[in-house]
């Protein structure tokens, strides 16, 4: 072997990359392994993409309760309209199918991929690999897919089989065949006309006697805007944090979260004092009125940012 000066190695690498790179139009730059490594976060059922690391069911429990339970419920039962994660076995062919991780999802890898890429809802890609293994293991445990002593790592996790995997098949449409009949195609005597139930849809934009307003999510904004009017610099900084991290629950009243503008819900809390409210927001709260994960599940926020919000 012989040694090359570093500069020569770099020059050789550039020549090599240049030779490989020549696409038909020669547009763009080489995506380096470092660039790809930072963005290549996907996991496949065969285990491709699972990183080193580990997490147990036992480690997953407190993480789940702190970061997931405020929306998904302590037992994966789902708060409000947030997704139900556990239960539902044996319901898929009934009149009330309940599609959960355990009853429906065909692959465990999807759980790891999705928790890591998109959860907690207000703080995506904030979990470490070990935390993701632990929470994934705990959600599998909530579904009786693994035992309470399960430790998830690259090998053990890729080996998990989901019960509903065999029940998926590739799209086989077109599955129905209508014909282009033009006359006497149906017998009106057999018609049953089913009408809509009044009041389930917003119709205020075209019906004056509708009990339901033509509302949309935007209608909840004025309450926030009213606060904006007299905001100090500190409050403005808080508003930005609120929009990014808090609004998902406090805009909708999830898990007993008092809504912005709901004065009666806030009054008891305000009486506990600003220090107590900030402490709850930073450290989390679990009590008769609801649950709040520490920092709303977004640990990347500093204590100062939470207090301002």
């Amino acid at each position: 072997m012989f040694k090359l000066p570093n500069l020569a190695v770099a020059a050789a690498a550039i020549v090599l990359a240049g030779a490989v790179q020549a696409g038909p139009l020669g547009i763009g730059s080489t995506a380096t392994p470092e660039m790809i490594a930072g963005w290549d976060i996907d996991i496949r059922p065969d285990g491709m993409g699972l990183p080193p690391g580990r997490g147990s069911v036992a480690e997953g429990e407190p993480l789940y309760e702190a970061k997931c339970a405020s929306c998904h419920g302590l037992f994966g039962e789902g708060e409000g309209r947030w997704p139900i994660l556990a239960g539902g076995e044996g319901t898929l062919d009934t009149l009330h199918p309940e599609k959960t991780v355990g009853s429906y999802w065909p692959y465990a890898s999807t759980l790891w991929d999705y928790i890591h890429r998109a959860m907690p809802y207000p703080a995506p890609q904030s979990l470490t690999d070990d935390e993701t293994y632990a929470i994934s293991a705990y959600v599998l445990y909530l579904n009786d897919i693994v035992d309470d002593d399960f430790v998830a790592d690259r090998e053990s996790f890729a080996a998990v089989k989901m019960p509903n995997e065999p029940n998926f098949y590739i799209d086989n449409r077109p599955d129905v065949q209508n014909t282009r009949c033009m006359e006497n195609c149906a017998d009106p005597a057999n018609f049953t006309i089913v009408t809509t139930i009044n009041g389930v849809t917003p119709t205020g934009h075209f019906k004056e006697d509708s009990g339901v307003a033509a509302n949309h999510y935007g209608d909840s904004e004025p309450a926030v805007k009213a606060v904006e009017v007299a905001m100090s610099d500190a409050a403005t900084a808080g508003k930005s944090v609120y929009d990014k991290a808090c609004q998902a629950c406090h805009g909708m009243g999830v898990a007993g979260a008092p809504k912005v503008g709901d004065a009666s819900a806030w009054v008891d809390r305000i009486q506990t004092g600003m220090a107590s409210m900030s402490s709850n927001a930073i450290n989390g709260y679990q009590g008769p009125n609801g649950v709040m994960p520490a920092k709303g599940g977004n640990m990347s926020l500093s204590d100062e940012e939470v207090s301002m919000a």
């Binding site: 496949r44 991780v101 065909p106 692959y107 991929d113 999705y114 998926f168």
Partner: peptide
């Protein structure tokens, strides 16, 4: 890849 939006969602029961 069988990701969430092609297994849990956007599949037809």
């Amino acid at each position: 890849w069988h990701h969430r939006e092609e297994t849990s969602k956007y599949t037809d029961l």
